[in-house]
Amino acid sequence: MNGFERRANQIKEKIKKTTLGMLQASDPKRIRIADISKLANVSQVTIYNYFGSKEALLREVIKDYLDKGTADFEAYMKAGHSLKEKIAYIIFLEKEAYRELPLGVIKELISEDHELTAYIEEQYKNKAIPLTIQMIKEGKESGEISEDVSIENVLVFIQLYMNQYETLLDMAQKSGDLDKFLEGMVHMFFYGVCGKG
């Protein structure tokens, strides 16, 4: 990579980092190229030259954000942790992701961008699901998951948690002790309401 390409990449990363910061604090519809330009200290023309439109910039920022999350998830899943540690990681990862970028922001962007929706579905199908299935198989082999419980059962149970995640986080925040609440949810995931058998 020559000096020009390196500088161009630095400018692009600066624009994307600025945009992500703005998404963390503002409704995507309120974000304007002029505001990004001012905060990133680059011209609006530069932003349009690199990204073409605000929508394309937002799409690339979300893709980068999700790619980083997927890479972190994949690395953790392959690092030799127990099943309980992996499930706790998934739940705490969601908590951290929610703090970094509210779920409502991603939902809003997905609802208006079919390309981003297709990208997320592809990542989920080709990366998240296979990693989760592998985790479940390893849990069954280690005896952490009962042989009476199918892979499909565990996938559905995880999906039920994830479908209600925004509600769970809201309840956790109202509880006054977010970490303790989520640790309780991990415990219930494994042992139900009666405790460990």
Rank of each mutant, 00 (worst) to 15 (best):
I87M: 09
D67F: 01
V61I: 04
K95W: 14
F157L: 11
Q159R: 15
E100V: 06
S43L: 07
D27G: 02
E60V: 01
A34R: 12
A40H: 02
G143K: 00
E74P: 00
D148C: 08
E115I: 02
A118S: 15
G197S: 12
R7Y: 04
L168Q: 02
K12W: 05
M185W: 04
P102H: 12
E152V: 10
K38A: 13
T70Q: 13
K17N: 10
L168I: 15
Q164W: 09
T167I: 15
V105G: 07
K95D: 12
K137A: 08
G21L: 08
L155R: 03
I87C: 03
Y89F: 13
K140W: 03
M162W: 05
T117E: 14
I110R: 15
E94A: 15
G184P: 02
G69K: 01
N9A: 13
M135W: 01
K137W: 04
I36R: 06
K127Q: 12
M188D: 11
E138W: 01
L116M: 11
L160T: 11
E152W: 09
G197E: 14
E122Y: 08
M135S: 04
N126Q: 15
L168F: 03
Q164S: 07
R59K: 15
G21V: 08
V105F: 08
S82T: 12
G176Q: 05
K63M: 15
Q134F: 09
G104L: 05
K78P: 07
I90T: 04
A97N: 15
Y191N: 12
S37F: 07
Y165T: 00
H187L: 08
L57T: 05
D67Q: 10
A8H: 14
K29T: 08
D113W: 01
G3T: 15
G104H: 09
E13Y: 07
K63Y: 04
S150F: 01
M162G: 11
Q159M: 09
A128L: 14
L57A: 06
I145H: 11
I158T: 03
L66H: 13
R99L: 14
L109G: 03
V61W: 00
H81R: 13
L116T: 05
K17V: 08
K16T: 02
L23G: 08
G52W: 07
E96M: 12
F92N: 06
G80W: 03
V149A: 05
A25S: 14
N153H: 15
N153R: 00
Q44G: 08
T167S: 05
S26Q: 14
K180I: 10
Y50A: 00
K95L: 11
R32A: 13
I129E: 03
Q24V: 08
L109H: 05
V186A: 03
E141P: 06
A172R: 09
P130D: 01
P130H: 00
G192N: 01
E108H: 05
A118V: 07
E74N: 06
K12L: 03
